[in-house]
Design a binder for these strands. Structure first.
Lengths: 215, 215
DNA sequence: CCACACTTACTTACTGGTTAGTAAGCCCGG
DNA sequence: CCGGGCTTACTAACCAGTAAGTAAGTGTGG
């Protein structure tokens, strides 16, 4: 809090443009996460920041643009989290996936946002559909590459398309478990379930037991 | 107005109550499937049947009730499909799951409806959330039971909670693959991907190779 | 066998609510 | 003193649900 002598008004300092934008993005993530994009309104978002919905539009122009920036924002934060640690490859990637699942069990909001937006995105003409499709595509690429690294290490040759199939299955099981966990957290253990499923898929793909130790 | 001679009028006969209800349920399945529950309106549904939205409300009372009946309708149709063939158990159940996946690849609309509603259902207070949660619960029960049957057949004893974990993983991988397939049908093969993933999970659970032959 | 009573299946018209987006102006800080 | 950040006020569209009226059937008593 600034200014003791000058004018010690208890008035809150007006945030800078970038601060406000970040506040709004965080609020929009919460709102779209808990209510979905269509059901979550700009009024909801604005209320969480303490302004009106017109104020939000002043910063982002339209609801669609806000959604796009929310998605980019999520990517930026996720990458920031790995800063310097370079994208892991081989077995390290799968360790990272399990670790993420473990962390996600403590961040229900983010998991919910991801699940809701992903599900919504398969509706006709949804503004996030290309983003989600692209995200899946990139993930499949990275994971199938890691599978190939493991295969090389163990000197097994995989049939054409097998790494991609395994990659799709790994992503699928993670998303699917999140869905079940969101609807009934007691029935599914996110971390151990993810680890078990990934190990199963890798073991079957490589033809030899694969273990993912603690990170 | 009518009446020329006798009454050879080419006038369309008014459908019976039950016919109309079925028409509306089918239309609602398409609408909620392609646009989601919140974004799909009663006007959309009504237009597909050639009546007004008030006509739809005459039959179903409210939008929420319509959704509930759509979900029940889906169950009824699915079960009808298995009529007489009793709910399969043991390896037969997994064969059935793969067969369903193969059929689903030809029924995009239904898969989309299921994916959209499931994703939407994790939003706060969604009218379908208890239905989806219940469905997951029942499926986990049936599949974990089938896993136990397989374990007994092979005389292996499974750790506490292991069948449930495998069941959750099987459901997860099916749902997740559907999502990826909807967004990029060329990147994922629904039938073979499902078969591969289920075999991987069962093999890892039972400690011995499990194959799912053609049904 | 048919007229009258009643029910069913809607339509039209409206209500109250919510939505995204626009326009104009106010106010504060640098 | 001026410009960005915001509010207030508004619009046009759309929504679910209600109410009342109407036309087309169905059942029934005479």
């Amino acid at each position: 809090m600034p200014e003791a002598t000058g004018q010690a008004a208890p008035k809150a300092k007006r945030p800078t443009r970038d601060q406000r934008r970040e506040e709004i993005l965080a609020a929009a993530t919460r709102v779209f996460g808990s209510k979905g994009y269509h059901q979550g309104s700009l009024v909801d978002v604005a209320a969480q920041v303490g302004i009106t919905h017109a104020g939000v539009l002043h910063h982002f122009g339209s609801k669609d643009k806000l959604l796009w920036e929310v998605l980019e924002y999520r990517d930026r934060v996720d990458v920031q989290h790995l800063e310097g640690k370079h994208i892991p490859g081989g077995i390290e990637l799968f360790r990272h996936l399990v670790t993420t699942a473990r962390q996600n069990a403590e961040r229900r909001g983010i998991v919910q946002a991801y699940a809701v937006l992903t599900g919504e995105s398969v509706t006709d003409g949804h503004p996030a559909s290309t983003w989600v499709a692209e995200r899946f595509s990139v993930l499949r690429g990275e994971i199938s590459q890691a599978v190939r690294v493991l295969a090389d290490e163990r000197e097994v040759t995989l049939p054409e398309g097998e790494p991609e199939r395994a990659a799709a299955a790994v992503i699928a099981v993670m998303d699917g478990l999140q869905l079940q966990w969101l609807l009934d957290p007691a029935a599914v253990d996110l971390a151990s379930g993810t680890e078990f499923a990934i190990e199963s898929i890798l073991t079957a793909t490589l033809g030899a037991p694969v273990r993912i130790a603690a990170s």
